[in-house]
Simulated scan of single mutants.
Amino acid sequence: MWVTYRNSRWELLLFFCGMLIAENDHIRGAHVPASNPALPMEEKPRSTKTKLWPIFWALFSILGLYLMCQPDGRGEITPGWIWLSSLIPKWWKEERYRYWQSTGAVVFIIAVSHSPRWQRFFNLPVVQYFGKISYALYLMHGPAMHVVGYHFEKWAYGLTGVQGYWYNAGFVLGACFCIPTVVWWADIFWRAVDIPTVKFAKWFESKVIAKA
């Protein structure tokens, strides 16, 4: 992890941090049977002393959200970010906004793994659905936007124009068509490719691994 950090490989650093967080969840017994909610729910009786932990994790999650909101540019002159921007190491080669945004992502995930209230939110059906199609969204948003999305935007700006606040109106109008299209394409990919691939991988694993 230190090597990835010193070489500004924020994406690998996030991957390794995710592995460590998942391993820690496994060690502390946070996982539950499949019949229970998708995310672990910590509903154990709490003593007076441990009642402070929910407050701590709530504040910790707010810190993570704040760090993830690091401006993409001009952070060194943005109120609330001047000091934090000055702490970014000089040797950091990637975009400067990746530094605190990556840190915030790790902080937030750690907080969620210990916060029943956040876990309830992420166990909502709609959130679970977007979690399931998240990889498909990552893969399909580019093709969907290039094939049809940018045509929607061009049409929207043709109606609203691009002067002043009409530019924002055109953006919102285009998004009303682009977002459902991207989600639809991702859903199709998830059902047609992602789910069958996972099923095949599980089947193949069951054939090549000897049962104890």
Score class of each variant (00 low, 15 high):
residue 29 G to R: 04
residue 141 H to E: 11
residue 175 A to I: 05
residue 203 W to S: 11
residue 92 W to R: 08
residue 127 V to F: 06
residue 187 D to G: 06
residue 136 A to M: 09
residue 4 T to V: 12
residue 17 C to P: 00
residue 187 D to E: 07
residue 118 W to T: 13
residue 53 W to D: 01
residue 194 D to S: 11
residue 107 V to P: 01
residue 93 K to P: 10
residue 117 R to P: 02
residue 172 V to I: 07
residue 99 Y to F: 15
residue 165 Y to A: 04
residue 69 C to Y: 12
residue 48 T to P: 06
residue 31 H to I: 01
residue 43 E to Y: 04
residue 62 I to P: 00
residue 162 V to Y: 00
residue 116 P to Q: 13
residue 115 S to M: 12
residue 149 G to S: 13
residue 174 G to P: 00
residue 81 W to M: 03
residue 98 R to P: 01
residue 163 Q to M: 09
residue 108 F to C: 07
residue 37 P to D: 10
residue 126 V to K: 10
residue 6 R to E: 10
residue 83 W to D: 07
residue 196 P to Y: 13
residue 28 R to Y: 10
residue 160 T to S: 02
residue 138 Y to N: 00
residue 127 V to Q: 01
residue 5 Y to T: 15
residue 103 T to N: 01
residue 14 L to Y: 10
residue 12 L to Y: 06
residue 54 P to T: 02
residue 197 T to H: 07
residue 37 P to R: 02
residue 194 D to G: 01
residue 134 S to D: 05
residue 80 G to P: 00
residue 32 V to F: 06
residue 96 R to C: 07
residue 76 E to Y: 04
residue 166 W to Y: 09
residue 167 Y to A: 09
residue 32 V to Y: 07
residue 59 L to C: 07
residue 173 L to Q: 15
residue 116 P to E: 03
residue 44 K to P: 08
residue 133 I to L: 04
residue 131 G to Y: 07
residue 109 I to R: 05
residue 141 H to G: 01
residue 13 L to G: 07
residue 85 S to V: 11
residue 204 F to L: 11
residue 189 F to Q: 07
residue 95 E to N: 09
residue 138 Y to K: 12
residue 166 W to A: 07
residue 70 Q to H: 10
residue 57 W to F: 09
residue 90 K to N: 11
residue 132 K to A: 09
residue 202 K to R: 13
residue 71 P to K: 04
residue 174 G to E: 09
residue 43 E to V: 03
residue 212 A to N: 13
residue 67 L to D: 07
residue 173 L to M: 15
residue 88 I to A: 05
residue 23 E to N: 14
residue 76 E to D: 14
residue 200 F to L: 13
residue 111 A to W: 06
residue 8 S to A: 06
residue 129 Y to I: 08
residue 118 W to C: 14
residue 24 N to K: 05
residue 61 S to V: 07
residue 193 V to W: 14
residue 203 W to A: 10
residue 121 F to W: 13
residue 73 G to T: 11
residue 155 W to E: 03
residue 21 I to A: 08
residue 180 P to V: 12
residue 98 R to T: 05
residue 16 F to H: 06
residue 90 K to W: 01
residue 28 R to W: 12
residue 189 F to Y: 12
residue 61 S to W: 12
residue 51 K to S: 06
residue 167 Y to G: 14
residue 120 R to N: 05
residue 142 G to Q: 11
residue 6 R to V: 08
residue 94 E to Q: 14
residue 85 S to A: 14
residue 31 H to D: 14
residue 154 K to W: 11
residue 110 I to D: 00
residue 62 I to M: 03
residue 112 V to D: 00
residue 194 D to R: 13
residue 104 G to K: 15
residue 205 E to K: 13
residue 95 E to H: 12
residue 52 L to D: 00
residue 26 H to S: 09
residue 66 Y to S: 06
residue 118 W to V: 12
residue 75 G to L: 13
residue 69 C to R: 12
residue 41 M to L: 15
residue 133 I to N: 01
residue 60 F to G: 02
residue 165 Y to C: 00
residue 158 G to C: 03
residue 6 R to M: 08
residue 133 I to Y: 02
residue 166 W to K: 15
residue 182 V to I: 15
residue 2 W to G: 03
residue 92 W to K: 09
residue 77 I to Q: 03
residue 119 Q to M: 14
residue 204 F to K: 15
residue 4 T to E: 12
